[in-house]
Design a protein around this nucleic acid. Structure first.
Lengths: 162, 162
DNA sequence: TGAAATCATTGCACTAAGCAATGAAACTCT
DNA sequence: AGAGTTTCATTGCTTAGTGCAATGATTTCA
């Protein structure tokens, strides 16, 4: 356990680490630029709801990797901001369904667009050939990471957002 | 001021986004594996202190991109866990100097090591040639990002940790 | 039908974060 | 030297995020 087969030089790991910092900064900034008062956690919830559609509280919680109690309270705040809606399911009256409103979807769309803009701007400074190299390198990396054995991965790490 | 000169294809941006998620997950996991009860915020503080040495409260706060009040309370918790120390500066008695203890440094070292292991493990699944390609691609990306005009960048984004 | 499981919520505790006010110390400028 | 200003840390207050445990409502199942 531990070191990889090919030692994977320090320089490579450092490069990955540095890029990681950059990427997180971009993500945070894109949200701040769009919805000043929407937090990262709230945005993650909106993303789940926007992409998966109406969800039960328990499923939303699972998708976010938090407890239902946390998800519930987050929904309180998002409802207050009118970014999501709460319905009681009529089939099973224990369940509460949560779904994104038009305003909520707007936040997600705009933040995503802004993030794309920022990344595109950064990439745009590089020659096209290098852009392509970055794309394939990162795809390879993400693919390799995707194979991480589940045992190695943290519990509720759905990683909906960066 | 939106799109970049070279459009930077959707596929490239998507690749960056995916890699971003992966990287963050790795970072979070490395910390959880080492110090169960040390949070990301606390770890960030430890990293600053370990790398920059003894800091005034105000400088630590700036490095973390938080207010002095937040930094101060964080230090309360870290002192309680004996991961850092608080000294009153004798040159200027307004200042409080904060520095990492041996135990604190240990947390940083181990988490860093673990993160390196995880990344090395992922990279180790790829052929050496591809590892090199990833390293140079990411270096180029980080370098390009480094040139982001300050106006575009968020206020306290020192991004000490991912 | 009665017991067990599922689902959401609420109470309690804690970390994280910002803003405003306070107090202490150092500095500056006549 | 002394008065006013700036710098620094801290504390009170508020809000968000999070988990755990208990509760209540409902559904399922044996």
């Amino acid at each position: 356990m531990g070191t990889a087969h090919t030692p994977a030089g320090q320089a490579i790991v450092d490069a990955v680490l540095t890029a990681s910092r950059t990427l997180v900064a971009v993500t945070e900034q894109s949200l701040g630029a769009v919805a000043e008062d929407t937090t990262i956690a709230q945005y993650r919830a909106l993303v789940v709801l926007a992409s998966r559609g109406s969800q039960r509280m328990v499923d939303l919680a699972a998708a976010l990797g938090v407890t239902p109690s946390t998800a519930g309270r987050m929904c309180d705040r998002l409802v207050r901001k009118e970014l999501i809606r709460r319905h009681r399911a009529r089939s099973d009256r224990r369940e509460v369904l949560v779904s994104v409103t038009a305003a909520g979807r707007e936040v997600v769309d705009q933040a995503t667009a802004r993030r794309r803009e920022l990344l595109a701007e950064i990439l745009g400074r590089l020659p096209a050939s290098q852009q392509a190299a970055i794309a394939s390198a990162l795809q390879a990396f993400a693919a390799a990471a995707g194979e991480v054995p589940d045992s190695e991965w943290p519990a509720g790490a759905e990683t909906e957002l960066a």
